[in-house]
Computed example of a mutant assay.
Amino acid sequence: MAEQNANSQDQQQENAPAFSLQRTYVKDLSLEMPNAPQIFLEQEGPAVEVSINVGGQRLADTVYEATVTATVTTRIQDKVLYLVEATQAGIFEAANIPAEQLDPLIGIVCPTMLYPYLRATIADAINRTSLPALHLTEVNFQSLYEQRLAQAAEAQQKDGKQDSGLYVPPGATKQ
């Protein structure tokens, strides 16, 4: 009887949902200052434009890569002061996760976990320009995910295509 309970518990643990971050890394980093050193003479304050994108792909049966990319363009009038683009990536293990929960996991939870690393990478790159620091504000990845779902649904209605309704980040594949 005790053996049956132990086997039953082992089986439940094997089938239990599991999610963990295995590794984070900077996948891509670029810093450009095309108008230096002349731009340093400008007195006007810069305008900052930030864009954020997420992506993901399946690497193995239960292993996924998620990415968050930020592009920061700072201009004084029409001249670029600096342009920083960084992609922070992470490898995640997601086992026994229902299919309908996998897309939100890759599109919301993973980017939320990676974003602090991305912020630090960008702040460090800008710090190395000798210009004042720029710290990216927090991002609500759930809101971004919902916006992308709405855009995908709208695009499908225009195209007349029917799909599962699940958002797959760029680079990811439905399995």
Rank of each mutant, 00 (worst) to 15 (best):
D159Q: 15
P104L: 01
L105K: 02
Q101N: 12
I91S: 06
A16C: 02
L114Y: 00
A16P: 08
G107M: 01
Q147D: 13
D78A: 10
I91A: 02
L144G: 11
Q88C: 03
S20G: 09
A36Y: 12
Q162L: 14
T74A: 13
N140W: 05
A125Q: 08
E100W: 02
D124E: 12
G45K: 14
E42N: 05
S143C: 04
Q88W: 02
P17T: 00
G165V: 11
T73V: 14
T87I: 10
E44C: 00
K27S: 11
Q157A: 15
Q162V: 15
E138K: 09
P17M: 01
R23H: 09
R119Y: 03
E65S: 10
A60V: 03
A86P: 05
R75T: 15
T73Y: 00
A123L: 09
S164V: 11
I97K: 06
N7A: 14
Q147T: 12
K79S: 09
Q162I: 14
Q38S: 10
E65R: 13
R128F: 04
F92P: 07
Q4H: 11
F92C: 06
G45D: 14
E146H: 04
A95V: 01
Y117T: 04
D61S: 09
V84K: 05
G165L: 11
Q9T: 14
Y117M: 04
I39C: 04
S143Y: 06
